[in-house]
Design a protein around this nucleic acid. Structure first.
Lengths: 116, 116
DNA sequence: ACTATAGGTAGGTTTAATCCTACATATCAA
DNA sequence: TTGATATGTAGGATTAAACCTACCTATAGT
């Protein structure tokens, strides 16, 4: 028994990155960031896709902790949750030093090319 | 003709996030960050997996632009590439303001709870 | 030239991600 | 209560991701 991908299986970090790998789900996050909490139907209206398919996207985002859901009458208000994205940024931090050094090195090379 | 996930298909951003969703591939990036450029075999030795399977992981990282490869004798030196991760951080930027506000709001609530 | 080493490609298996159509659930409105 | 609205769940189809065992390619050493 060899295979084993899964957005639903492994660590929460796996789930967050896997959730972010879909342009549909990234667009949902953007809509929530720019427009504040919104019901599922308003979000769904932006996508040419059957509602159940969109529901699955929302579920993936929920399972990753990227959004939360609140019942509001017969709608469900979705809200962007800040913690997972903040954790992604923390994950990036040790790489930031690395790429600043590399970018700086590149800058030096370019400077020397200009001199010559 | 409905389905269509794919790490190989869509935009470069999709590929980067999909590549990051595997703990194996994140560990490879960490090894390259902390240990500098290394041949495929040295990287592979950290994982209990057949070499061809690991080769595929390297290919996914290459296709995402997260690593580059250079022939060095009969080895292939892999190197961490800074640009895609820097782009992830740029992608995160507009969310950063959002979560700082939310965190601050949470802090205010906690402060008021302490007062009471 | 021959062998060993380093690494990838080919092809197959299993699981799961994404999409769909139908159906179920819950709330509001007459 | 009956009907309409809002949204999710069930089940099925298709594709691809992750793994494996074999095999191929390229370089180094004897």
């Amino acid at each position: 028994m060899p295979p084993r991908p899964s957005v639903v299986a492994e660590s929460i970090e796996d789930r967050v990155f896997a959730a972010l790998s879909s342009p549909v789900r990234r667009e949902v996050l953007r809509l929530l960031r720019d427009g504040g909490p919104q019901p599922a139907g308003v979000l769904a209206a932006h996508f040419a896709m059957a509602r159940p398919s969109f529901s699955e996207h929302l579920r993936v985002l929920r399972d990753a902790g990227l959004v939360s859901e609140r019942k509001e009458g017969r709608q469900r208000l979705y809200r962007l949750e800040p913690v997972p994205l903040a954790e992604v940024q923390e994950w990036l931090t040790p790489y930031e030093r690395f790429w600043r050094e590399r970018m700086a090195a590149l800058g030096d090379v370019l400077d020397r090319m200009e001199d010559a």
